[in-house]
Amino acid sequence: MKRRLILLAAAAALGAVAFSGDRFWLQFLGKAMIGSILAMSLDLLVGFTGLVSLAHSAFFGLAAYLLAGLSNRFDLVNPIVTLPLCVAFAAGCALIIGWLSLRATGVYFIMVTLAFTQMLFYLFNDSPALGGSDGLFVKARPIEGRAAAYVAIWTAVVLVYLLLSRMLRAPYGRVLEGILGNEQRTRSLGYPTRRYKLVAFVIAGALAGLAGYLDATLHGFVNPAQLGWRQSGLILVTVLLGGKGTLYGPALGALLLAFIEHYGERVTAHWNALIAALVIAVVLFLPRGLAGLVPGTRRA
């Protein structure tokens, strides 16, 4: 109950920023909330299903690139058309990559998702037609104006949270819980677990695509680094920092990480070392993340 109040207050406060009209905060918090969508959707795999995927940034990038392509080549920007197209594209790619990767289990799965991510990274990085290492500008954006984009992002975060928490309470979520606890037994109870994992992978991929779409809308720019494995690693860090196996943890973890990144950059040129130290410290001393510090919570 208390947790719900905190979440409501956080959501309301973030929503209120839209009216401030401050360029910096709209951009900064908008980006942070996109991080929340990424972290919550990755947690569906990592924390709720036990799948450590490094392909999350790939689906983010694919949707963003598709938006840039639609906008630049076909002058297609209307969100009613482009949003479903980009999200469906990310989901389709997640279906193919997931189908292949889920043939492998355990560490193999991690390595295979990593390899596919890097394959896409090099594909975009090495081909001038796709913008090369400089990336692409999105000529016309689906949502013009920072405040409007911010409101769209805020709405998306809230909807993603509601969607995921609903899903996790539904029969489907129960099966994921079973897979996390004991996949072999879940299978012997009659669940084709690989199919359930694939569906989770596709849903998470689609939501990452949504995040990518919003990011390209907010920044008007995509580059291959957003698609690379380091980005995936950073999303994983967010999930762990916030607390895997909860939805609010990673969502708030993304906001926290954005602040650390922002102020860390001011304090030292080597803020990556700061992040590195943070990651190592969290893994070693706080394996359940910040949510683990909240007493009496297990699941969102």
């Binding site: 490094l54 690693g233 762990l240 590195a276 130290a277 190592i280 969290v282």
Partner: peptide
């Protein structure tokens, strides 16, 4: 393991 060694990569 992934995250800690990823932290080492950054470091």
């Amino acid at each position: 393991q992934v995250l800690l060694t990823y932290g080492l990569v950054l470091l």
